[in-house]
């Protein structure tokens, strides 16, 4: 009984860890490509982060970010990479809901679903 549970849990963890690694690699790749474009175009402009201004609206929500990335703007592609990065832990929790359901552990299906809800609330709040 316990053995089966352990085995399933471990199998889930292997899948999750690889999922996370793939997500991070994809994110890093996007950030590198976007970064190169950004530096080629704006590398010699002065860097000013001392005064806080906030990002332009299009770089704050996923629709704007995707649009900006598809027009090959460096900053948009970087931001898309960051969005992919933020999505990796969310995907992990989503996968856990599914995995707990396969194990028929309904208590943990509920717990994982709640966590997923909090994450989506935070992430999709930026869709407005």
């Amino acid at each position: 009984m316990f053995r089966t549970f352990d085995w399933t849990d471990q199998k889930i963890e292997v899948i999750i860890a690889n999922l996370l690694r793939a997500g991070v690699l994809l994110a890093a790749l996007l950030v590198i490509v976007g970064g190169l474009i950004f530096l080629m175009r704006h590398g010699l402009s002065p860097a000013s982060y001392h005064v806080f201004a906030g990002e332009p609206f299009e770089l704050r929500n996923w629709k704007g970010i995707v649009r900006s990335a598809f027009t090959l703007r460096g900053q948009g592609i970087i931001q898309l990479g960051l969005l992919v990065l933020i999505a990796t832990p969310v995907a992990r929790v989503a996968f856990s809901v599914f995995a707990f359901a396969i194990e028929r552990d309904w208590l943990y299906v509920g717990i994982a679903a709640f966590v997923l809800g909090v994450l989506l609330f935070s992430l999709l709040g930026s869709a407005v």
Partner: peptide, 17 residues
Amino acid sequence: AAASAGVYLSRGYVDPG
């Protein structure tokens, strides 16, 4: 971190550069 990163992003605190 993902839970707060979404809020930071939509508030314009995440600068790509």
